[in-house]
Simulated assay, not measured.
Amino acid sequence: MTIHIGAKPGEIADTVLMPGDPMRAKWVAETFLEDARQVNEVRGMLGFTGTWHGHRVSVQGSGMGMASLSIYANELIRDYDATTLIRIGSCGGMQPHVALRDVVLAATASSISTPSSTILREVNYAPCADFGLLRDAAARADAMDVPTHVGGIYSSDTFYDERPDLNAEMVRHGILAVEMEAAELYTVAARHGARALAVLTVSDHLETGEALSSADRERSFSDMIEIALSAAFGS
C-alpha cells in the first residue's frame, strides 16, 4: 500500500493500463477484463485487476496532466513491481491527415517541461516508447484495419492553451497530436527500466475544430484498448 494506491501486495499486475479518467478505468475493467475487482479507490482514483485472455492486467486511473501521472507511474513501478505501463486516452489531432477516431501510437513525446525536468536539469531528454510495444501495437492495429499513425506527439502542460504560435510549430515539425501525460510516462519508465507506450484515440482536432461527443468517444475507444492489450502480451 502506498500514499496514493491502496492495493495490497500482489494485487497489481505486471501490466497496467493507465487511462486518465478513473471512470474510464472502471469501464475498461468491466468491458474487457474477466473477474475484474477493484483494488484502489484512494482519492477516487479507481484501480482494478482482472485477466484478459488468461493474462493478469490492472487498470489504474492516472488523473490529468504529467504531475498526476508521475505519482501513479512511480508508485506502480517502485512499490508494485509493474513492468509494462500503457497509457490509453484521448488526444487532439494536429495534422490534416489525422482524423477523428484514428489511433495514434506515440513513438516520441515532446514537451516544454515535465516533473522529471528537475532531475534531468539542463539535459533536453528525448522521451520515447518501448520499441517492442510500439512494433506490436502497430502490427495489431494493421491486422484490425484500424486507421493508425505512428510518430511524435506533444505532451502539453496546459489544457486551455493560449499559444497558437507554439501549436503552429508543432504542426510544422510533424507532431501528430497533443495530450498531457505521455512524456512523463516515458521518462519515468526509462528511469526505472520499465516498458511504456501511449495508445491514443483522436477525440478532437485542433486545426479543424471537430470533436467527438461523449457517447462517440466511448464507442471509438474500444479499438484502442484491444490494440494496447494485444501489444502488452505480443498477441
Rank of each mutant, 00 (worst) to 15 (best):
S156Y: 02
V98A: 09
A183N: 03
F221P: 00
V42K: 15
I12R: 04
L105N: 14
G50Q: 07
S156E: 13
V104N: 11
E179C: 08
T2W: 01
D136L: 02
L133C: 04
I119H: 13
R140W: 09
M18R: 01
E75W: 12
T208F: 01
V28Q: 02
R195W: 01
K26W: 03
T148C: 15
N124R: 11
R87G: 07
M94Q: 14
V59L: 05
I86E: 07
S110H: 10
M23D: 14
S156G: 12
A194N: 06
V28D: 00
D161L: 12
I71E: 11
A196T: 01
I12A: 01
L176C: 08
M170E: 09
T83P: 03
D157I: 09
M170S: 00
T15K: 02
A182Y: 04
T84E: 01
E184R: 04
D136A: 04
Y154R: 14
G193A: 07
L17H: 06
S58N: 04
M144N: 05
R195H: 14
R24P: 04
A183K: 06
L105H: 13
F221E: 15
H205Q: 08
L76S: 10
H192R: 07
K8G: 08
G44S: 10
P164V: 02
G6N: 14
G54N: 05
S155A: 03
V16M: 05
T208H: 02
R191E: 12
A182K: 06
E122R: 14
P22F: 13
S220A: 15
I225F: 05
R217C: 06
S156I: 04
G93F: 08
G92N: 08
A129T: 13
T2N: 04
I12M: 06
A139W: 05
E169D: 14
D14P: 00
A129L: 11
G47P: 04
D21E: 13
N40Q: 02
N74C: 11
E11C: 08
Y154C: 11
T49C: 10
M18N: 08
P115W: 13
A139R: 15
A29I: 06
M144D: 14
H97V: 07
L166N: 00
T158D: 11
L17R: 03
S113M: 14
M64A: 14
Y160R: 12
D14C: 00
I71M: 07
Q38H: 08
P96F: 09
T158P: 01
S235C: 12
S116E: 13
E122Q: 11
P115L: 15
R24A: 00
